[in-house]
């Protein structure tokens, strides 16, 4: 790990000001320090977000607001989250380990970087790490990597479980710029496709800081579910995951959002599944037919074609569980 300074800002202004001068924010540090130890990231100035008042979890009748520095474990265990947005709690509890969840934060989780082994080892070429150096993963060890949203330059899968859960809740992200201005964007617009610039992963502007995630309350959110498929029974990133939020009162699907993890280069919404269900009666056959549409346009690499099948089955199981 290369040497860095660590600034402890006394408030948001000081933090984003330092961020505007090229400092890197450090939240829980569970991903950034791994990357720094592997020399994938070499920040020279870190800005400690821990002193900032960004840890609140605020629940109202119509929304949930998660401070960017709220810890994964606290959000997962929050009674209102468990009751009204179960997909969030389930996705968090399926993430990492208890120790990491005690450290990792909501904002940091959304910005964690891919687990692609080529990205995380400076001994390999990688377009995301060194633009233009190539993507050996395309013909290499790509079982865990993406089948959706890939480009010829990058097939790295997005690693966050939480982000998949949050996009089916149509969450938004509060941002603060170094000049003090704030804006709110849908979470679905935070992450970018790799295209020909895989090193540009988000729509964040220079120095911009995530301050909170806002989640609207909904009937669908209350009947939401997260399913994670993995080789190891725990403490592993998703091979495939599926998040579902559904409102199907009186046997008709009124509201449906479906997304998948482990398959996309960013958290992947599945509108094709949603459209096949919205307004239709909730029957085993409609669920199965809709799930069968998941992952359209997939472009598997050499080892991960099975993810197409697995994705459809995971989506179906998540739909079945959420509506059981």
């Amino acid at each position: 790990m290369q040497s860095f300074t660590l600034a402890a800002p006394n408030g948001l202004d000081a933090a984003t000001d330092a961020g505007g001068r090229g400092g890197r924010y450090i939240a829980g540090g569970t991903d950034l320090l791994q990357l720094a130890k592997d020399n994938v990231e070499t920040p020279d100035r870190l800005i400690d977000l821990e002193p900032l008042p960004l840890t609140d979890i605020t629940v109202t009748d119509d929304s949930l607001r998660l401070g960017a520095m709220a810890r994964m474990s606290e959000v997962a265990a929050h009674p209102a989250v468990v009751a009204r947005w179960p997909v969030i709690s389930q996705a968090l509890l399926a993430s990492a380990s208890p120790q990491i969840r005690n450290m990792g934060t909501i904002g940091g989780n959304l910005l964690q970087r891919t687990r692609c082994g080529y990205f995380r080892d400076t001994g390999f070429a990688c377009n995301k790490r060194v633009p233009g150096s190539g993507c050996p993963a395309r013909e290499g060890e790509n079982r865990m990597l993406a089948i959706l949203g890939t480009s010829e330059h990058c097939i790295a899968s997005h690693a966050s479980d939480l982000a998949v859960a949050l996009i089916v809740l149509e969450a938004s992200v509060d941002l603060r710029a170094p000049d003090g201005t704030t804006r709110t964007i849908p979470l679905a617009e935070l992450h970018k496709l790799p295209g020909d610039t895989p090193h540009v992963e988000t729509t964040l502007r220079p120095g911009e800081l995530i301050t909170a995630v806002a989640v609207p309350a909904s009937r669908a959110g209350m009947r939401s579910h997260y399913l994670k498929v993995r080789d190891r029974a725990s403490f592993e990133f998703a091979l495939v995951s599926a998040a579902v939020a559904i409102d199907a009162g009186a046997g008709t699907v009124h509201d449906i959002r479906v997304a998948a993890g482990g398959v996309g280069t960013k958290p992947w919404r599945l509108p094709e599944v949603e459209e096949a269900l919205r307004g239709h009666p909730l029957t085993p056959k409609t669920l199965a037919d809709a799930a069968a549409l998941a992952g359209q346009g997939a472009t598997p690499a050499t080892q991960n074609g099975f993810k197409q099948v697995l994705l459809r089955r995971a989506v179906l199981r998540a739909l079945q569980t959420a509506t059981a």
Binding site: L6, G29, T30, L33, K37, D48, S73, S97, Q99, M103
Partner: peptide, 27 residues
């Protein structure tokens, strides 16, 4: 492992279990 993947370095910080390999001493 020094990367938070094994738990051998688990300690308690303010009563919570964390991995000390991904905790900066100054923090």
């Amino acid at each position: 492992c020094d990367r938070g993947s094994c738990g051998a370095c688990t300690v308690h910080v303010d009563g919570r279990r964390v991995v000390s390999c991904l905790t900066l001493a100054v923090r």
